[in-house]
Computed example of a mutant assay.
Amino acid sequence: MHKMLKEKLWAYIVHNNPDLMFNLQEDYSVTHYLDEKVNGIMPMAERLLAERKPLYVIEELCVNEMTEELRPSRFLYLREMLEQEFPDDWQRLREDGLLTYEIINIMECCREIFESLTFSIENKDNRNIHHTIVGHVRKHLAKNMGTTVSKKDR
């Protein structure tokens, strides 16, 4: 159970929070982070096993609990926003193999905005947050990639 939960947690991080993945790898702390998270959830997993819950239910509940603080994914939010608002830049970055790298850079550039606007599951669809982030991304792309115009400005 422990190994399987570690694998599922790592897969979640790789797909939803590659910024965390890179930071953990850079600090050589992947194993420590995963073990800490899984060890913290094991009492819940053992309780659910004792209640004879199906394994797939236990896995889902445990992964959801371990990833709660990682949601919503700022990375996925920015990736979707880039694709919708800046499709030419998104396509160029994807083709050049730089999309993930540049989204992580944009995440850093927008960190204070996400935090000051308390970006969360409850407000991830807030139009004010969206417009504020789009404005910062537009500036970032113009500064780092040349002039960029959002889809809505065309």
Rank of each mutant, 00 (worst) to 15 (best):
P87K: 08
T31W: 07
L78S: 07
A50D: 14
P87S: 07
L5Y: 13
E85F: 04
L82R: 06
A11P: 00
Y12H: 15
A142E: 12
D27T: 04
P72K: 07
D19R: 04
L55G: 04
N123H: 10
P87M: 07
D88M: 15
A11N: 11
Y12Q: 09
V134Q: 03
W10M: 12
E85Q: 10
T118I: 07
V63M: 10
V134G: 04
L76P: 02
E65T: 07
I41A: 12
N144L: 04
H131E: 10
S150Q: 09
L20E: 02
K37N: 05
M66H: 10
N105P: 05
W10S: 12
Q91R: 15
R71L: 13
W10F: 13
L48M: 15
H15D: 15
Y12M: 04
Q84R: 15
H140A: 03
I41E: 11
Y12C: 07
S29K: 00
N128L: 11
Y56H: 14
L93P: 09
R127H: 07
N105C: 10
V57Q: 14
Y101R: 12
M42C: 08
E7T: 00
H136S: 12
L34P: 06
E80N: 12
I133N: 01
S116Y: 14
Q25S: 06
K53P: 08
P54L: 06
P18E: 11
K143Y: 14
N16D: 04
V30M: 14
V137C: 07
G146F: 11
E95S: 10
L99K: 03
M107V: 02
F119W: 02
N105M: 09
T147N: 11
D89A: 08
M1H: 00
R111W: 02
N23A: 13
I13F: 01
D96G: 01
N39R: 09
D153L: 09
H32W: 08
N126S: 08
E108Q: 15
K37Y: 05
L49W: 01
